[in-house]
């Protein structure tokens, strides 16, 4: 009796095709992706039927933090209504985010020092550079030099604690532009920088801010009470930046 010989077959699978597919997919994701921006507070925006997309360039985002949850699972209102600002320039020009942020910081600090002659804020060039790398900021002016000296990990640690009183740009219901609050100083600085760029031939930012209302986006949590939001809207009205957009997610008419 002859033994049945089991033929030994090689188990090698040709992975070339698979590799082709994955490389294609990878290329697709790399080209289409815009990275999630680091934001100090996570908010769930309400949904609306509006289909206008958020622009990626020439945009000022004002983030209003929502209420947190404390250790017992209760609503923690102490972290609610903290203001953060993010400035994005245009990548394809000299008007890049970094340049805009530097200009905004210098402008804002100069204005702040004019109003607070007794304790001015002094920044080194390195600190200004560090600021231009921040996507979103929200801190008292007086804390800025110390904050900008820190390593990125330490900065994140500071921004994580929203209940810390130094975190968040101070805001009140001031309507007197001779004595602006810190939020108003920042917004005015951003506006001035945009206007200065307009004189240099870059009109996009200034027109987005003033004319169309595309340039300012207010982002807030859906459960935040209107009294908190109203403060921000009122400040923008005082600054005569009364056209702006509210960030929402998409929903259908049936909802």
């Amino acid at each position: 009796m002859g033994k049945v010989k089991i033929k030994r077959k090689s188990t090698l699978i040709d992975m070339t095709a698979m590799s082709d597919v994955t490389v294609l997919l990878l290329t697709f994701f790399m080209l289409t992706s815009t990275f999630l921006q680091k934001e100090p507070a996570t908010v769930i925006t309400p949904s609306s039927v509006s289909e206008i997309k958020v622009p990626t360039a020439n945009l000022v985002t004002i983030l209003v933090s929502g209420a947190g949850v404390d250790g017992d699972g209760k609503r923690d209102a102490s972290v609610e209504g903290k203001i953060f600002i993010s400035v994005a320039g245009d990548v394809d020009s000299t008007f890049s985010s970094e340049n805009v942020r530097e200009a905004v910081l210098i402008e804002a600090v100069t204005n702040y020092n004019k109003l607070h002659k007794n304790n001015p804020v002094e920044l080194t060039n390195a600190q200004v550079k560090a600021f231009s790398k921040l996507n979103m900021f929200g801190l008292k002016f007086s804390e800025l030099p110390k904050f900008l000296e820190m390593e990125v990990a330490e900065q994140d640690e500071v921004m994580k604690h929203l209940d810390n009183p130094v975190v968040g740009i101070p805001i009140d219901n001031n309507r007197d532009m001779n004595k602006p609050n810190e939020f108003q100083i920042w917004m005015r600085a951003i506006y001035n920088v945009a206007e200065a760029n307009k004189d240099m031939g870059n009109d996009a930012f200034a027109s987005a801010l003033r004319r169309s209302g595309e340039g300012i986006a207010v982002k807030a949590d859906k459960d935040t009470p209107y009294s908190t939001i109203h403060n921000v809207l009122d400040n923008l009205q005082t600054l005569k930046l009364n056209k702006f957009s509210l960030m929402t997610a998409l929903k259908t008419e049936q909802d």
Binding site: T34, L36, T45, I52, V54, G213, E214, N242, K243, T248
Partner: peptide, 14 residues
Amino acid sequence: CTTMIKSQTLQIAL
């Protein structure tokens, strides 16, 4: 790491 869905905006004038 990507956001495929971009947020929408609602434009208002006050």
